[in-house]
Write a protein that binds this DNA or RNA. Sequence first.
DNA 1: TGGGAGTGCTTTTTT
DNA 2: AGCACTCCCA
Length: 743
Amino acid sequence: MTPLLDHLNAPQLAAVTLPPAHALILAGAGSGKTRVLTTRIAWLISTGQVSPPGVLAVTFTNKAAKEMQSRLAAMLPINVRGMWIGTFHGLCNRLLRAHYRDAGLPQLFQILDSADQQASVKRLLKSLNVDDEKFPPRELCHFINAQKEQGLRAAAVEAWDDWAKKRVALYEAYEAQCQREGVVDFAELLLRSYELLERNEPLRRHYQERFRHVLVDEFQDTNKLQYRWLKLLAGGGAALFCVGDDDQSIYAFRGADVGNMADFEREFKVQNLIRLEQNYRSHGNILDAANAIIKNNPSRLGKNLWTEAGSGEPIRIYESYSDGDEARWIVEEVRALQRDGHTRAEIALLYRSNAQSRALEHALFNAGLPYRVYGGLRFFERAEVKHALAYLRLIANTEDDTAFARVVNFPARGIGARSLENLQDAAKAAGSSLHAAISQVGGKGGTSLAGFAQLIVKLREAAHLPLPELVDHVIELSGLRAHYQNEKEGQERLDNLDELINAAASFVAEEGTPNQDGEITGEFGNDLSSFLAHASLEAGEHQAGEGDDALQLMTVHSAKGLEFNVVFISGLEDGLFPHENAVSPRFGGHLPAQQVGGSQNSMNEDKGLEEERRLMYVAVTRARQRLYLSFAQTRMLHGQTRYNLPSRFVDEVPEELVKWLTPRAGKGGFAVPSAPTFQRTPRRSESSSGSGFRIGQTVMHAKFGLGVIINAEGGGSDARVQVNFGNAGIKWLALSVAKLEAA
DNA sequence: TGGGAGTGCTTTTTT
DNA sequence: AGCACTCCCA
């Protein structure tokens, strides 16, 4: 056998060497999914079953795409850069650049990221005099994207009442605006290339015949449109090889549809369904805990992870009085781990929502422990960088109103709201871009607007410069550099602008097209245009301190795909994790009435809870050697102290796998008595101490079960307490009536 | 034009 | 509580 296939286990080997037919690979966490995917491609190519151009491999993140590429490069003696391996959006961009005319786009079309899209919608609402209270840009974007992800253009969207009709009209107007400006948003990349292939038969044939093997990573995260896109591309007899894990589907909230897995199996009559269940990452106890948790989800394709590694250490569970105490305990534990030889970078602190990082950061900072928080602003999303990019976008395309509006008066050059309004009116009347409208609003010499027009002309004259020099030039001439030099805290921003020049230089070095005298070459247009696409499609993972030995702080969502020797999952409290909004969804207020009521609601609740449980499953399976779970009785959230019950997910971990670091909590209740410092005098009464209860105490009610006292008022025979019963809700109870017992 | 005060929001997020 | 955003005034 080829060395390629060495060290694969039986199901992995079976998956890698499947005949060219459709296949669904159910790959559990840590089961070697990327390995199977890349080895499959390498095997197909090295055995001559397909040539590199015949392969299309899709992932969701740039990181995953790069990982796949570098692994392939190590396995194959060929240049893998020419292969079609990338993200859905990256590949669609590639397709549209190559066939921009057929797709009805200008050659140098620009890509709007989510922030650009929102700005664009906002500008649209303003120009149409639409009340943005009634149609919040954020929500409108969400609506537009959701339609596109269903494959629906405005004309195809059904609307019954005036409000819905208006929304659809705005969708249409937004489309027209984007088309005029020559920009596309993320969802548009997908939809536009889908339509291109669907409507253009020769082109579709071409690609269908070209791609013999289509491979998909993280298939459970695909949305409806992505699945249709795949079906279309594989429609010419290509073998569709989908790898995914329904138990790790945690993005339904943004349109991912696990149902695609079952649909794929049915629609393609998939004969080859292979389960990768041997886990190479975690010790047995951790896997057993994960299996036990996920088993509570009724709708699964079914899978049970196992390992040859020993059972390892027990799962450690810690109960604390407050979020602050929890954080301080973690600090102590991390110090102990360090003494035992663990490096900080191999320890992850996971939490359900970003707000929870504050307490952790506070404790880590005070303890002087280096840490790194993932998920903040990324490089290309920084304001100063976006400003510079906006100038660059105007060089590539003066019609780009989003870019124009962003920098027309930044740095300030005396173009106020008044003159901008006039300009927008003129542009609207003439159906032109803001830039083109300058000449119409007395943009003759002398005015500030004319000065800006002059600036753009000058910048465009420099377009022939090598990209890094062009970027430098733009930063200088636009006045951005001077602006930040004058700013007190501007140094970091200046550094970022310099970093942008570096980014341009390395981009050209790695992916640039040969570019003589500014001529447009290659399928991506020129360097400038492809660099701008790169900036939109890859917001820039790299952050300061990447290589440092620092604790890794992130949400469970961002931890997907990663692994660590030691994992802490903190904030395991009902309401937080599972999140209350997922379990009892608050409806946005614009849904048809019938969707809010009865069975729909509980169905939504189940769906929500199941996704939360998958999230917990993802969190648990990040750990290799040691897993800590922790929860706190009180937590500061949104400026208020909350009293939560332990997460039901804690109860779902089998007792025999657990080592309690604090006295074991009862099912759904607390074990550790509240700290003595927790004597709070209720605001509207002297005290409720005469009743024998105190705030924070866990109590038992005959009907509602276990709960925590979160507030009290009145006194003596009139004493009332507010109790959080978790599932049963939060209730005010009169102590003289309700039969409450200390639990 | 820019800063200070007032207001409202707050799950998860890649591209 | 903290942050982003808006509005208003000097």
